[in-house]
Computed example of a mutant assay.
Amino acid sequence: MICKDINTNNYILTFGYGNRKDYDEFIQYLKSFDVRYVIDVRNSPRAWSRKWYGQEIQSCCESQNVKYISMPALGNTSGNSKWIPPSASLATQALEEVSKIIQSETCLLLCAELQSARCHRTEVALKLHELTKLPVRHLE
């Protein structure tokens, strides 16, 4: 078994599924970047299409040997790109938890908005960058 040393991950990856109707690009990114965890940063892991519901994404991830974690504490209540978490204290705890995972495993932050500039995941990734010093890479 090969173990990764701490800080061997090169990026904090983010991805928004937008209006994608299938998992093709998502799976390609999981494989290309050897993603081990998908961290769902939606307040509620639901979507316009059942394909992007948390349970469905979890099944897709498991089929690729990737762990799926829903982190509603890192969700957004603002309705726009400004990040307002449901609870500041729970968000702080979740950021600490995710930062530990990110330092040892390749992770991808998942949200609904296709364009990272229009999504709160950019702010979440920035907070994780401050904790881990890893650069952020938005996959679009």
Rank of each mutant, 00 (worst) to 15 (best):
D40H: 03
K31H: 11
G75H: 08
E130C: 07
N80W: 03
Y53G: 02
G54Y: 13
N9L: 01
D34Q: 15
S78E: 00
D24R: 13
N9T: 14
L90H: 14
N19I: 08
S81T: 04
D22Y: 08
V124K: 02
G16H: 08
R46Q: 05
F15I: 01
F33N: 04
S89F: 03
S49M: 14
E56S: 13
A125S: 10
S32V: 07
S99A: 08
N10T: 02
Y23R: 02
W48N: 13
A125H: 05
K4I: 08
K51W: 01
Y68E: 07
L13M: 10
V66S: 01
S78I: 01
A88Q: 15
I6A: 11
R20L: 05
I12L: 10
H129K: 13
G79E: 04
F33D: 04
G79I: 01
Y11K: 07
W83A: 10
Y29K: 10
G54V: 03
M1R: 07
L114H: 13
L139S: 10
C61V: 03
A73I: 06
A88D: 14
N10G: 09
L95C: 09
R50L: 08
I101T: 06
H120I: 03
K31L: 08
S59F: 01
W83E: 05
Q58Y: 07
R20V: 00
K127L: 08
K51C: 01
L131A: 12
T92K: 14
M71R: 12
T106V: 12
E25F: 11
G75L: 08
S32M: 12
S59V: 04
N76P: 11
S116D: 07
Q93K: 15
V66N: 03
C111W: 07
E96C: 04
S89K: 13
K82H: 12
C60K: 08
A88S: 14
I102V: 13
Q103E: 14
D22T: 11
L110Y: 07
L74E: 11
E113W: 02
A117N: 11
E123V: 07
Y11T: 00
D34S: 09
A73W: 08
I84L: 12
F15E: 00
T106I: 09
Q55T: 08
K21F: 15
V38A: 09
L114Y: 15
K4D: 04
L95Y: 11
S44L: 13
E130V: 04
L13K: 04
T77K: 10
D24G: 11
G79Y: 00
F15N: 02
D22S: 14
L109W: 09
N65H: 13
V41E: 05
G18T: 03
S89R: 14
R121G: 03
T132Y: 10
S87W: 11
I102Y: 02
Y29V: 11
I2L: 15
Y53K: 00
P45R: 00
T106L: 03
S70R: 06
